[in-house]
């Protein structure tokens, strides 16, 4: 998912970005106010993504991934919100103002989580992250799992695209109304899941064969530049995160 760009954000130490990502997440969820998540998206995440030269990519993927959530949240709210100011009525749908408001607020949280993690993965090299995590004392197997999990979306995309091609070549309709698309799901998702299970075993063998579990002290090919400034900054973020959590708890009491 990483996109190589020459930007200040790209050059930050991966740990700095990890902490920043979590800090933004906690801020969005812990701070009071219904619109906090939107404020953080607009005032922090978007500007950061402009700095990282990935704003259009971030916007596009966030939109694509959020859309199904948005549709389902709005649908559910307009179907099931009990009493309130009715907006309009259509067939079985009777959305209420309060329901719509609630839908938009919860959507903000979903978009925050997505855009926050996207910003991180678009600007952080997976291998740099893995090295940084190991240097910070994390066992390599856990670092590897985290890094490959972050890659799972593009890897599923690649595999999914091939499977989609294979099934379309067998006459499977994938374009059209919701019913057509739903019917196409099984022939695409099943090989994807089964294939991934088989892949896991072979990949485990492949990395083990390359001494993944060796007890030697590991080295790394690439250097990850770090600065005192960034180290200080990370301490500050940690403190801020801690305060945010305390504040979030106290405020809710």
């Amino acid at each position: 998912m990483y996109i190589a760009r020459a930007s200040g954000l790209h050059q930050l130490h991966p740990l700095t970005k990890v902490l920043l990502t979590f800090c933004l997440l906690i801020a969005g969820l812990a701070l009071p106010g219904n619109w906090t998540s939107y404020l953080i998206i607009l005032l922090v995440i978007f500007p950061l993504s402009v700095w990282g030269k990935v704003f259009p990519n971030l916007l596009r993927i966030t939109w694509l991934v959020s859309l199904p959530f948005a549709i389902s949240v709005i649908l559910i709210q307009s179907l099931f919100w009990g009493t309130g100011t009715p907006l309009f009525e259509f067939w079985i749908f009777a959305p209420k103002l309060e329901g719509a408001r609630y839908a938009v607020i919860s959507l903000g949280k979903i978009i925050l989580v997505m855009s926050d993690f996207l910003l991180f993965s678009l600007t952080t090299r997976p291998d740099a992250l893995m090295i940084a995590l190991k240097q910070a004392g994390m066992p390599s197997s856990i670092a590897y799992i985290i890094v490959t999990t972050l890659q799972i979306v593009p890897s599923f995309q690649r595999k999914g695209a091939t499977i989609l091609d294979a099934q379309r070549s067998r006459g499977l309709e994938t374009e059209g109304n919701l019913f057509v698309r739903a019917k196409a799901l099984v022939p695409i998702v099943l090989p994807l899941v089964l294939g991934s299970l088989m892949e896991v075993e072979e990949r485990a063998i492949a990395i083990e064969a390359r001494a993944f579990n060796s007890r030697q002290t590991e080295t790394s090919l690439i250097e990850i530049p770090d600065t005192q400034l960034q180290k200080n900054f990370r301490t500050v973020i940690l403190i801020v995160m801690f305060l945010l959590i305390i504040f979030g708890i106290l405020w809710r009491l």
């Binding site: 190589a4 890659q151 072979e202 492949a206 064969a209 390359r210």
Partner: peptide, 15 residues
Amino acid sequence: LAFQNPFNQISGAKY
């Protein structure tokens, strides 16, 4: 050891 399916031998952690 190297085996047949090359795709599954890519570590997935490298760029």
